Each structure stands twice: as C-alpha cells, then as structure tokens.
Simulated assay, not measured.
Amino acid sequence: MTIPVLICDDSALARKQMARTLPKDWDIEVTFATNGAEGLDAIRAGKGEIVFLDLNMPVMDGYEVLQTVQQQDLPALIIVVSGDIQIKAHERVKALGALDFIQKPVSADAISHILQEYGILTLTQGASADMHPMMEVDLRDACQEIANVAMGRAADLLAKLLDVFVVLPIPNVNVLEVSELTMALKATEESSTISALCQGFIGAGVAGEALLLFHDASFEDMAKLMNLSSEDETEVLIDTGNVLIGAFLSGISEQLDMKFSQSHPVVLGRHCTVNDLIHASSDKWRRTLAMEINYRIEDYNIQCDLLLLFTEDSIPTLNFKLGYLLD
C-alpha cells in the first residue's frame, strides 16, 4: 500500500536532498510544501501520513505545525529535520509530539535507521518513490540552506556555552551591490547604537569578511552570561564573535568540503550607528554575496547580526561547490 509522505521545508535544496535520501524501494507518494501552512493543508488532505518537517520557515514555522497537529489530533507521524540542533530545540519538538529529530544535512543512513526503528519502513520489491518533478535550485536558495545549517551549528555552540536557547531566524541571502548592502545594513538599525567586529576569511577560491553587529543594549545581559564585568565590552564582543563566526564558517566548510583560514578579529566601531559603520567600511565592499543572520537569546535582551560578505570573485567557486550538493 502506497504511503503518503510530506516533505515540508522552505528550501528547494533541502527538499531535494530529503527526497533523494528516502529509501528507493519504499512504496510512497511524496508531496512537497514550502511552509507550515501549506504543510498543514497537505496533512488535512491526507498527503502527509509521514511528515519530514523543517523548523525555520516563513508563514508558519515547524513549532506551530507541531502544535496544531497536536491540538487538532491530525493523523501525521512527524520527524523534524532541522539545522537547529540545540538540545532545547530537541526537547521542545519532542514535547510537541514529534516522533524524532534528524539534523541537517540529512543522510540516507539516518533516515533509514529512524524509519526502521519506528517500524514505518516497509520495502516493496520494484517499488520506487514517486518524487514528483524535481525542483530547480538556484544559487541564492542553495546558499540560504547552507547558511541555515551553519547558523544552527553556531547557535548550538553559543547555547551550550551560555546555557540558553538561541532564537533563530530564516537566513537572508542575496547577491548585492554596495548600495544595496548599505540599505540592508541600515535595515538592521533600530535607532540604537551598535558595536561591530570584523574578521576576514579565505579558502581555495573563496574569500570574504564576517561582520558581527552587536546591539549595545545587549552588552549588560551578555556580560552576565559570560561571567564578565559590564565594563568588559571589547571582550564580550570578541568572545561572541569567536563563537558565532568560527562555528558558522566551520559549518559552511563542512558542507562544502573546504577549509577556511581566519584573520584576527578587528573592532570596527564602538557605540556607533550603522550609518557610521557603513561610511567607514564600504570602500572595501563592491558586489558581494551576503548571508545575514539575526541571533536573539530567549528571555534576555541580547541581539546581534552576523553578516558574511563573500567577494564577487568567490561566486564561481561557490557555484561549483554547490553543484555537488545539487547533483
């Protein structure tokens, strides 16, 4: 009997990777959804007896889907597949009725093991999963999913070090001209001042800069969590940058199978506006591939923006590396 399987993820790359890792002899019909609201519609239509669910999505996220399925007692066995690997994320999805949790990027062995463990994998000789027409994946979408996984690695490290829960957004990825980057940075400004850290990175055919924009109102709470004095702002800034930038770059290097060397972190500005920062630094940036992540720590007044700015010359190498993930 053919089983209706739903893959619910806003990333075309993630949906493609997930579909490819499902057992080939599993008699299933696969439906795709790009956000939680679409996913719930599919479940209600009987297209999601087994659901592979992402957490960070627009319109309705994975937590809201789990909550709705639980409240309305909808017929779906849900396996969360996410780049957010924080222990508290695991605990929360289990409490909301998720069957299990698989970290991104997914592997066929991990999927097969979980399906067998719960007795929901029945292989049929000659059966072949109906994957529907496979979706096209563009550079921006692929980079967004790479950033999503790297973001989760960085958040997990920060969460473990500080014993907190880091609230994760949907990464914002765009190829920008300098004027557009200027507008993007200004969009992060909420009439507050920031302190900024910059760290260069380089790999084979790839180079860029990581910027950490730390909201000044966040220093007091972050210093307490780090057991530092509220006067040690430079140390707070550098320590936060070391964790987030180092873990994020490590997450990207693992996925793209390439190594990065990092320069020493440099404090770009203290208690300045984003406008001041742009004015001082925009000479260095031309056309760039920008990954932007806004990290917030739950129950604390802590917020910072991490931007990875890849040089225009890096884009062909990134395209080449991403090709291996897409094929």
Rank of each mutant, 00 (worst) to 15 (best):
Q86M: 06
I79H: 01
V69K: 12
D100E: 12
I85K: 15
G62P: 09
V81H: 07
Q70K: 15
G83Y: 06
K94E: 07
T68H: 01
I102Y: 09
A89H: 05
E64W: 03
L53G: 14
H90F: 08
V65K: 07
I79V: 13
L55D: 03
Q86Y: 11
E64S: 02
R92P: 03
D84G: 01
G62I: 01
V93M: 06
P58I: 01
A89L: 05
M60K: 14
V69Y: 15
Q71D: 15
I102N: 07
D54K: 01
R92S: 11
L66S: 08
F101C: 00
I78C: 12
M57G: 04
Q67W: 04
V81T: 14
I85T: 15
Q71R: 13
L66C: 03
I79K: 06
E64G: 00
V65H: 13
I87N: 10
D61K: 00
V65T: 05
H90I: 04
I87P: 04
Q72H: 13
I79M: 05
L66Q: 08
I79S: 11
G83F: 05
V80H: 08
L53H: 12
I78T: 15
Q72P: 08
V69D: 14
A89P: 05
V80Q: 10
P75E: 13
Q86L: 11
K94H: 13
I102T: 05
N56C: 11
V81Y: 01
D54W: 02
G83S: 13
L74E: 09
I102Q: 11
A98N: 13
D84Q: 01
D84W: 00
Q70D: 10
Q71I: 10
I102C: 05
E91K: 07
I78V: 15
A76T: 12
L74G: 08
L77Y: 15
A76K: 11
E91M: 09
L66F: 04
A76C: 12
G62D: 04
V69H: 10
V65P: 04
L77A: 15
E91R: 11
L53V: 02
L96V: 04
Y63R: 01
D100P: 12
A76Q: 14
I87G: 11
A76V: 09
I78W: 15
P58S: 02
